[in-house]
Write a protein that binds this DNA or RNA. Sequence first.
DNA 1: CCAAAAGTGTTGGCAGTACACCCATGA
DNA 2: TCATGGGTGTACTGCCAACACTTTTGG
Lengths: 238, 238
Amino acid sequence: MTAQAAGVSVAVSTVIFALRPSPHDGRMTVWLPLVRRIREPFDGRWALPGGPLEADEDLAASAARTLAETTLLTPQYLEQLYAFGNTDRSPGERVVSIVYWALVRSDEADVAVETENVRWFDADSVPELAFDHNLIVEYALWRLRNKLEYSHIASAFLGDTFTLSELREVHEAVLQKPLDPANFRRQIESSGQVVPTEHLKTGGRHRPARLYRYNTAEPDPSNGPLGTRQPSAPKDAS
Amino acid sequence: MTAQAAGVSVAVSTVIFALRPSPHDGRMTVWLPLVRRIREPFDGRWALPGGPLEADEDLAASAARTLAETTLLTPQYLEQLYAFGNTDRSPGERVVSIVYWALVRSDEADVAVETENVRWFDADSVPELAFDHNLIVEYALWRLRNKLEYSHIASAFLGDTFTLSELREVHEAVLQKPLDPANFRRQIESSGQVVPTEHLKTGGRHRPARLYRYNTAEPDPSNGPLGTRQPSAPKDAS
DNA sequence: CCAAAAGTGTTGGCAGTACACCCATGA
DNA sequence: TCATGGGTGTACTGCCAACACTTTTGG
């Protein structure tokens, strides 16, 4: 007995976020890559990258794979967003989509490829997408902005070390509002999420800034018992 | 091309929470119903209620259906928890489980049926379950305790009207710690989540307590763009 | 009257905000 | 030297925990 639910197929899609300078004012904003559909339904429309789940592939691994296939990048952060499975979300077919959201480093995203069928869009002005993908993007953006305030994810947009100004720029770009540098500094420092290094960043026409690193000892309180353990790490004792 | 991912089947399971008095000290604690498996794998083990997803059934509808089948109750609250889909979570078969969690009224749960193959367990001392269901229960409990602090879900354990003491008892039972009645009152009242009624509850050997009702006007900020609206959930008649 | 829970008042600590101010560098 | 961002100090405000106190019922 296969217990295979008749007619229900499983797909995995991923909302991939990166920060890029806006073409207008040059300020950093949130962007995401979309792929153009090349068949029905919704032929020609933009959609989230993804595809059917392979039988021998974990959910997060599938998300990481399609992410790499579309952007040639590896995610700094990857987390499940939601499972969308309404009966009417795909015309003529029953598809349950397990959607992940990912963060990639902004400097890497700058050089990411764009082709005829892969393009980056400003997250706050995406076109009309295929399926229910507009709702999915909206929800992912909401989660990103929400989670930024109580988690450590901002560093996923940056490299190994960074100044507090760079970290603040990330917050400002995601939350779309300016933050007081003094208060931001104290907030981050007292949270224990970051740890100062010996090095400074020079080169600006101003006092050099201390470089910080992420505090790997400090636990991320965000996901509870599921932890932040990432793609293809299906192991968990206890 | 059917796009049917070969060998991947979809199931929906539900973690159902209710408050019941502890058999030891009589204090209210969190309980959940489990069903005994009657075939391999894990024959004889306790497991979460659930079953394969029907092709013409929305995810939340499937969760509500199995909930009704096992407890004869309708949920006051129902929300998706997570999709579990590791390749090794079910021996010999690839199953992706979309798991929901639900809250049912405590007074209804008191009279819920128990049979040979359906039994209620204290949520903090469940036995060793089938599949990865121990992890799922642990995660659902974490979400419940977490969400209680920034959402409106506590009232789902109660009837239409309730005293602030009753609401506080719910919080104390879920969070497993006593709360200051005075501060709890102000916190709840200032949140605008509840609204006082004209009626009082008499009968105790003490001053009567005002009955409150849930404020349906106030939005629940918990789920963002997805809202608390549950796809084709057979409730929410008010 | 007393016991017990309903409900109000008051205080102190702590976190977030606004903003003034000094420091170190490149040009 | 000046402009610019790095970094510190400080006062104000609002929320929350603690707890003393008053109110209203049943017995």
